[in-house]
């Protein structure tokens, strides 16, 4: 499904991700763990086509990411949600959700939809799915952080990509809401047998909702294990501060 072959990335000479190879099957739920600045976001951005690798190749369903000509093709394969800030606060919720359809719509249809929403039923049912159906016509900036994450999820639902990438989707939420949201995300993903890669900092939630975990540290892959093999010792080595970092 998803194959990374010696993919590496640096920013202005600073290593963000050392060459890394990885294979993920359809329907797998992979947690990406590691301290801040370890390359988690870089990895997700590379898979999502947000940044281009310096070396190596990424293939989705056998198609090389580098060869995909249109954003539309990529969008049907990969969808991405971030920690926050990735909705347009000035638009109504319905338009932020339907933004997931922009890859399919013509420019004129996109413009017309801003005046009078097209395929509104898609947005409505996606919003029902994430549990806040009454917010359809509200201005997005009026929603709480947790509700905005639900809207971002609804957008991924209408985008209907086969792989879902989530970059610290719960980082700004309190523990109860974080677990709720993770539950929702993993349920939605498994219902349609999508593949999920999510970076997060909670070991408990990793054990509860994911099937596999990879650990990154200083841009290097430290481990790649099924979650039941995730021992405290492995985790200690991943997060442990070395002398030089203190």
């Amino acid at each position: 499904m998803l194959v990374l072959d010696r993919v590496g990335k640096s920013y202005q000479g600073n290593l963000a991700l050392a060459p890394l190879s990885l294979e993920v099957e359809q329907g797998e739920r992979v947690a990406v763990l590691g301290p801040s600045g370890s390359g988690k976001t870089t990895l997700l951005h590379l898979i999502g086509g947000v940044v281009q690798p310096d070396q190596g190749t990424i293939a989705l369903e056998g198609n090389l990411l580098a060869n995909m000509s249109s954003g539309r093709e990529l969008a049907s394969l990969v969808g991405i949600m971030h920690q926050q800030l990735d909705l347009v606060p000035h638009l109504a919720v319905v338009h932020n959700i339907l933004a997931g359809r922009l890859g399919h719509w013509s420019l004129w249809r996109s413009l017309a939809s801003l005046v009078s929403a097209r395929e509104k039923h898609l947005a409505q049912s996606a919003l029902e799915r994430v549990g806040i159906p009454e917010k359809l016509n509200e201005r997005t900036s009026h929603l709480s952080g947790g509700e905005q994450q639900r809207v971002a999820m609804a957008r991924l639902l209408v985008q209907q990509s086969k792989v879902v990438l989530a970059d610290e989707p719960i980082a700004s939420l309190d523990p109860a809401r974080a677990e709720d949201l993770m539950q929702l995300l993993t349920t939605i993903v498994s219902e349609s047998n999508k593949t999920l890669l999510a970076s997060l900092h909670s070991i408990d939630l990793t054990r509860k909702f994911f099937s596999r975990a990879i650990g990154l540290r200083n841009g290097e892959l430290q481990f790649d294990l099924p979650v039941d093999k995730l021992t405290n010792e492995v985790l200690y080595r991943l997060y442990n501060l070395t002398e030089t970092q203190v």
């Binding site: 999502g48 086509g49 947000v50 249109s70 954003g71 539309r72 990529l74 969008a75 049907s76 990969v78 969808g79 991405i80 949600m81 971030h82 800030l85 990735d86 909705l87 347009v88 606060p89 933004a99 997931g100 359809r101 922009l102 890859g103 399919h104 719509w105 420019l107 996109s110 971002a152 957008r155 985008q159």
Partner: peptide, 14 residues
């Protein structure tokens, strides 16, 4: 937000 729009397949016009 622009990056998110691009990743859902939007062209620069959109």
């Amino acid at each position: 937000p622009l990056r998110a729009l691009r990743s859902s397949g939007a062209s620069e016009w959109k």
